[in-house]
Amino acid sequence: MLDIRWPIGLMFTLVGAILVLTGALSSPESYQRSLGININLWWGLLLLLFGGLMALFAWRAKNRPDQPTARDPGSRQNP
């Protein structure tokens, strides 16, 4: 089955990159409304980090063939 961390990771990496680029290229005047903080740049970096971590987890799970966890102890106790 599809690992949901891939789409989450990729999407936030992409959106983060767009925000970082926007933040880096736009003039400081455009940040008056965000109290003078270049919020696109900073929040973009945070999204990049989050997206990157998600993708990293997904990648690790893919390369380390998971022990099937479906046999959790709880499942055998079904009433």
Binding site: L19, G23, S26, S30, Y31, R33, S34, I39, N40, W43
Partner: peptide, 10 residues
């Protein structure tokens, strides 16, 4: 009030 273009989209 607070979101510049970019964050606004988000």
């Amino acid at each position: 009030r607070y979101c510049p273009s970019g964050l606004l989209g988000l």
